[in-house]
Write a protein that binds this DNA or RNA. Structure first.
Lengths: 250, 250
DNA sequence: GCCGTTGCGTGATAACCTCTCACTGAACCT
DNA sequence: AGGTTCAGTGAGAGGTTATCACGCAACGGC
């Protein structure tokens, strides 16, 4: 039950399948609504069904369980972030090519290999894209980077998207001019355990930089989104920007 | 209902009050147990009551509601962290005084004002104390720094303890030799909005440093505790140490 | 020592929630 | 046209928070 019929993407689907996917989408849409206003723990299948004018158990035709729905929301959130990252670097490369009248037909490929030092680096583009994405829907960010249920293990499909996101970040970090900083014990440890970087041909400085980007930006964003800065009147956006600049310089 | 009878600390209490506080403590203890294994959203008053051999509604003699219990757990967690911070800097000052045979009777006061450059700075002591405290009970850390319920507003008592923690951190940062870094727009913004620092006589560099400590260490700790580093085989402790060193140098 | 007050614990109850089951009815395909 | 598939319903089990009225034991003043 509740398994999507194997229709490729949005091809020629039977009206029944189109109906099903539409109902699925509406359920998820209302779920996002509840998530944004009441948090993940307060997501109620019954309330969604009532909103849609259906009875409670009807939703179990579309999702195996409440956890299955949440898992799919998590997957969609990861997918959305990955797409945002891809689009950010692609748009950046395109805008840069436009600005310097340097038309390049191939849409794929090595966007970070050029050594144009005057342009804003991809990591900065990614950083601000991340912040925009997070502020657009705080609960969506917190759904994937917030407190997990202790026993929860993300399915492989989700970890694959997470790895994809990390790859984009690694590419962007690899395009940065590497500042030689003293090797720390952490660098040594990182040199031994870099298998997780999916065969990415990045040195440990690049790995370390990508991890620093991740943790530092998450630190600022997470505290901001969780409301821990309320009461302190400073602008979190400026703090984020300062952290990005520091990351680029260091 | 469910208001503690006004007995000062642990003074001469009537047997009834002693019983009450003991039951309260047992409830919270079992609540922490559930919290550690199932997360905050799965905390069940009914299950706690059953564990204690009582009926469900009996717990409402001690806590107004489930949210009231969680709020008190949050308060206790903040209190525990604040005490840990106080103890960390006190122990550090004491150990240092011991090591150099520099006995000082006064236990309070200005522990960070000495210009002993060779000693490990208080901020580093605080950082590692924080990590030890977080790893000892990850859910306790995530309870106060993790995903909040969207509408939740912490009571004044809790924000007061949070401010107390921030004061300890500010004191430790003020004791650091200040590295003059270029003033960013964030520094300017911080200079205008520093009221939150509770009348702390700290310049904006100190404020910025304290905030950087907070956000960066939280970034590493939060992702580690949430399990986002599983699959990557590096040692999060070394990463934390590298971040601390970077903070001290930068 | 007795008695009134206070407070703890219980069972019943209401209103939610997730989730299962048997069943109806309509749409779809052959 | 007829059989199959699937959406949706109502009933129901078992869980939760939370309120209520009630019994009962302990405590304190007289």
């Amino acid at each position: 039950m509740a398994a999507m019929p194997e229709t490729g993407a949005a091809g020629a689907a039977s009206p029944r399948e189109r109906y099903r996917t539409q109902v699925c989408a509406e359920i998820k849409e209302r779920a996002w609504g509840q998530l944004g206003t009441a948090g993940a723990s307060a997501l109620s299948l019954n309330a969604i069904a009532k909103q849609m004018g259906m009875s409670g158990p009807a939703l179990y035709r579309y999702f195996d369980s409440r956890d299955a729905l949440i898992t799919e929301l998590i997957r969609d959130a990861y997918r959305s972030l990955a797409d945002t990252f891809h689009a950010a670097v692609a748009d950046d490369a395109h805008a840069s090519a436009d600005g310097e009248a340097e038309a390049e037909a191939g849409a794929g490929g090595e966007a970070g290999a050029d050594a144009d030092a005057g342009r804003r680096p991809d990591v900065a583009v990614l950083a601000y894209a991340l912040r925009r994405w997070a502020l657009a829907d705080p609960q969506r960010y917190l759904l994937i980077y917030g407190t997990p249920v202790p026993g929860y293990h993300a399915p492989d499909e989700v970890t694959a998207i997470a790895a994809e996101i990390m790859t984009v970040l690694l590419d962007a970090c690899a395009a940065l001019p590497l500042a030689d900083r003293p090797a720390t014990p952490f660098d040594a440890d990182l040199a031994e355990h870099h298998d997780w970087a999916g065969g990415h041909a990045a040195g440990t400085p690049v790995l370390r930089r990508a991890l620093a980007f991740w943790t530092r930006l998450h630190g600022v964003l997470s505290l901001e989104l969780s409301g821990h800065f309320t009461g302190m009147a400073f602008d979190p956006g400026l703090m984020f920007a300062a952290e990005v600049d520091d990351l680029l310089a260091g």
